[in-house]
Design a protein around this nucleic acid. Sequence first.
DNA 1: TTGACATCCACACAAATGTGTGGTATATAG
DNA 2: CTATATACCACACATTTGTGTGGATGTCAA
Lengths: 197, 197
Amino acid sequence: MVRELTEKQKKVLEFICEKVRENIPPTIREIAKGLGFSSTGTVRDYLNALVKKGYVKRGSNKSRAIELLHTFNKIPIISTIAAGKPSFAYEDIEGYVDTYDLFLGRLSFNDVFAVRVKGDSMVDAGIISGDIAVIKKQPVADNNDIIAALLDNNEVTLKRLKTKSNTAFLEPANQNYQPIRAEFSIIGKLLTIIRKY
Amino acid sequence: MVRELTEKQKKVLEFICEKVRENIPPTIREIAKGLGFSSTGTVRDYLNALVKKGYVKRGSNKSRAIELLHTFNKIPIISTIAAGKPSFAYEDIEGYVDTYDLFLGRLSFNDVFAVRVKGDSMVDAGIISGDIAVIKKQPVADNNDIIAALLDNNEVTLKRLKTKSNTAFLEPANQNYQPIRAEFSIIGKLLTIIRKY
DNA sequence: TTGACATCCACACAAATGTGTGGTATATAG
DNA sequence: CTATATACCACACATTTGTGTGGATGTCAA
């Protein structure tokens, strides 16, 4: 059950969000201090309200155990927008973009890195210069996977891997470019493309 | 100063990372319990080592105040890859993709939503069907901004906004499509494109 | 007017938590 | 041989922290 928050409750929730994003969830007394309350009881009342209305979850007898629910780690993906001003009903939410598992299924951060795309050799796959390509490190890949490959001259490129019987080559997604049949090694597989405007 | 970790120190760091991603940083005693140590002193020694080697930062007299540094909330963007096996030196890191400020400068999550792209009307801008478009809600936009617009028939589209003197229209990025000169309203401005493979 | 809810306060208490002191043992570099 | 780092232990102590009790005021719907 998710209900409307009052203005003051929103203030409390925003304060918690801020602290979570900065570092860690606040303690009750940190919230009190931050918002000018002189009693821990006041904050407890607010937290109870936020729990009841479905915005946070709490662990008992644990310090800082305030977990923000769906609305805050995740961005809703809207399927249909009805009225003029979009104030999204919950039925219209198709899913969420989670800022955490965006890149990784449950991968360790050690296995993931990013490269900035240079050039236009993959435009037909919707990958343009300046994009950030998030790569999962792995020594092998399947036919048709887009991979980060290391060429002889120590250059890194993003290309589609083509394996035919015994041979493998790199195929650009741009008709102005030729396939690369030189020696290369696979660094990893493309997980995500990110483009900031 | 960032130095190599021992295997056991890595275990401790990974445990902390796991807890951070699940919910909140662990307490000293939670770490001890999770890794089978019977003394809080042991954990303190490990934390000191992690601090000294530059992997975490700590707040004093604050519960759970373990802050993971760059390597863990952020994915490194590699500029050059030297040797065969990429074990990235720190000099090669061009920047970081932060999972938090990916979408928002410092926006409230209330002002941001996402739409899944349908159709190929924006392919020439590198936006293809299935992409997730993250939109910042706003009623106005500048000339040449890519925007989410609401049409008369309650349909949402992603198009480039063109404002000439007194008129405004929507321009697709695909030569097979015509500009839209019908009535529309601006829902918001494109912030980020995300494509998962 | 009764009850539910929001919005505050003070204060006490137990449990959770970080820190300090002082050990033991092993390995490695100078 | 000595200093330094790693890898553990036990335990005491002060502080931080969540929770509980009890109270006050105002609003709003039944």
